[in-house]
């Protein structure tokens, strides 16, 4: 399982990063039970993130109970990606997003009935106020969580266990 698990994690991370390209990514590790962040925040390039040593490090932390979060990073601005946290949202929410021209570039199922969608609105950085307004607007439209609409909200990184899902690591379905 070790090699297969590593391979699946690597594949899932690579797919997510390819779908949301950015120069740098902020990675944050939060211990699920205590809510405490693992010391340090990491800014990595996509190439650094898919290195074997990085993935092993993250998998060990995940095995210790840390959730792994990611955000495309552009300093004091938003990188152009908006997270919509669909907690118990309408199952058709993603279809409606597409119908409205708000196609997500990444959709993660973090637990049954709970999706996270990243929507890329711009290739250039967004002012925090505009990004937050966009997050609120999209959350309102699609039944997303309003608590997750600030301009630098982090979402889950694919390929790791979530305490809620019980399904193991991420698999690319489509």
């Amino acid at each position: 399982m070790g090699n297969l698990g590593f391979l699946l994690t690597w594949q899932a991370i690579r797919s997510q990063l390819a779908a949301m390209p950015n120069e740098l990514y902020l990675i944050r590790l939060i211990h699920h039970q205590t809510g405490r962040p693992f010391p340090g925040e990491r800014l990595w390039t996509a190439a650094q993130l898919v290195r074997a040593a990085t993935i092993r490090f993250l998998r060990v932390r995940n095995g210790e109970g840390c959730d792994v979060y990611i955000q495309p990073y552009t300093g004091n601005q938003n990188a152009g990606y908006i997270l919509v946290d669909l907690d118990r949202a309408d199952p058709t929410a993603v279809e409606v997003m597409r119908a409205n021209g708000h196609d997500p570039c990444v959709v993660l199922q973090t637990s049954p009935g709970h999706l996270q969608a990243w929507i890329r609105l711009s290739t250039s950085p967004l002012e925090p106020a505009v990004a937050t307004a966009a997050g609120r607007h999209l959350a309102h439209l699609y039944g997303g969580d309003w608590a997750s609409t600030d301009w630098r909200h982090l979402g889950r990184l694919a390929g790791f266990k979530s305490p809620h899902d019980g399904t193991g690591i991420g698999m690319l379905r489509g």
Partner: peptide, 16 residues
């Protein structure tokens, strides 16, 4: 955790 969709691209009506 499942990655159910991954495809790079801008939302068509994002700029609007």
């Amino acid at each position: 955790m499942k990655l159910v969709h991954a495809c790079a691209g801008l939302a068509p009506r994002g700029e609007a």
